[in-house]
């Protein structure tokens, strides 16, 4: 189906002006909305992820690709019927207390959503208590903590301890990321996972959800 390839290409090229028209065309051709999402939109994001990892595509282009994905999905959601969109899992995410950086975290959110996760974004400067409350209320499988500064990353430890204190730690997997974060640091504070960039984060979440 040529139109699906065109959708894929439009996602990779970040053609936000064209994507809705193309998706509409696919709908008009009678293609199953789930197929349009999986083979068209997500197919495009699958091409984007490795290109981003190798530096061939950069943040603004990935953001545009993810915007295409969002625009397309918005058109398709109402057509999915009662079942709605299949989600791989639910993730609560936020930038840690004292840190105002959100571009990296937003990129992770976009990549996760583009790959079929339901993401609850708590924003920036999120206190440990707020994370704990969201875990309690939303019951996600994964909670993701982001930090850009070495001076704020110790707050991740505080957040994990807070989850432990409230008896919530066993209910979720905690994953962390951000410029200064390493696997060693993740091990040190007892996080369940670490990824160095947004596309690696999708792989990490997939492995956690599949193992469950």
């Amino acid at each position: 189906m040529a139109i699906l390839d065109e959708i894929k290409e439009a996602v990779v090229d970040g053609e936000t002006d064209e994507i809705e028209e193309l998706v509409q065309q696919a709908i008009d051709e009678g293609i199953d909305p789930n197929v349009i999402i999986n083979d068209g939109l997500i197919g495009g994001m699958d091409i984007v992820a490795p290109l981003f990892r190798d530096g061939e595509m950069f943040v603004p282009e990935v953001m545009e690709a993810a915007d295409c994905m969002k625009l397309g999905t918005a058109l398709l959601k109402p057509l999915l019927g009662d079942a709605g969109m299949e989600t791989k899992g639910k993730i609560v995410i936020g930038t840690i207390d004292g840190d105002l950086h959100d571009i990296g975290k937003n990129l992770v959110v976009l990549m996760l959503e583009s790959n079929g996760y339901e993401v609850i974004d708590l924003g920036i400067d999120v206190e440990a208590e707020t994370f704990a409350q969201a875990v309690e209320e939303q019951k996600p499988q994964i909670v993701g903590l982001s930090s850009m500064l070495t001076t704020t990353m110790m707050q991740m430890d505080t957040t994990i301890k807070c989850l432990e204190d409230k008896g919530l730690r066993d209910q979720v997997k905690v994953i962390i990321g951000g410029a200064p974060i390493t696997q060693e640091f993740a091990d040190e504070i007892g996080a369940d996972g670490f990824s160095k960039d947004a596309s690696a984060c999708v792989e990490l979440c997939d492995s956690i959800v599949n193992a469950a």
Partner: peptide, 18 residues
């Protein structure tokens, strides 16, 4: 002024990368 709290920040920063 704290640049990161400006609502335009992300947009300008993204455009500025080209």
């Amino acid at each position: 002024i704290e640049l990161a709290s400006n609502p335009e920040f992300t947009d300008v920063y993204m455009k500025g990368m080209a």
